[in-house]
Amino acid sequence: MKSRVLVITSGKGGVGKTTTTANLGTALAMQGKKVVMLDTDIGLRNLDVVMGLENRIVFDIVDVVNGNCKIKQALIRDKRFEGLCLLPAAQTKDKSAVTPHQMKNLTNELRKDFDFILVDCPAGIEQGFKNAISGADDAIVVATPEVSSVRDADRIIGLLEAAGLSNSKLIINRLRNKMVKRGDMMDIEDILDILSIDLLGVVPEDETIVVSTNRGEPAVLENSSRAGEAYRRVARRLLGEEVPINAQEDTSNLVDRFKKMLKLAR
């Protein structure tokens, strides 16, 4: 299998890039793939704590690109899956500690040993973003159903296209079915209309994400987690399987259909 470098990005902060990276990485490893997750948020690293691997860090991504250590010395093996690794960001440097050229070399080096290289991108559109996307084959854009997040996603999609990444896929995160039903949250269709990119998955708002982050155990490990289930489905789609968007995300019920009919009649 040819390895793939995927950057997980969003523009806006706090929409779930790191959570998405951790869960997709873990879900792909559950499917037997060799996966490395790169935290490129230098100065504000967090993928380590979401994965529960913060106590094992010795070297980081800046050490690797500066040649202070070998890649293998900096890679942290996951507690649960043999084929899952994390390359943590440096916490005491800033985004300029890595260049796009170095990132490209690093991801190319990692292609030799891994099926998937997931790059967790920092928020913003500056140096950190440019670094994160420079080695990527494709991008996964994460957005929540809010005006600010969708607006930033639109900007990011434009910047990705300008950088030659024109096949970006969208994950809609933290969708609240109840709010969609009462017309107080944009639905999947609204967002796809505006952004006009392909949908990769829809993750419902789910308290188990907070619990799993508290514990440092990605939600995909929890069978009963709805968000975890959604991420497992995204992982299967990434592997080429045709998995329909979760039935529970389908908002049409009898009342909605009746309303639609009335709307047509008016």
């Binding site: 809010e146 607006r151 009462r182 017309g183 107080d184 944009m186 505006i194 009746f258 009335l262």
Partner: peptide, 21 residues
Amino acid sequence: RLFGKESTSSKDIARERLRLV
């Protein structure tokens, strides 16, 4: 919900504002 109120739902406002911005 069936009559009237629908046109003022906040998601429609969100969509329209997004379109313009």
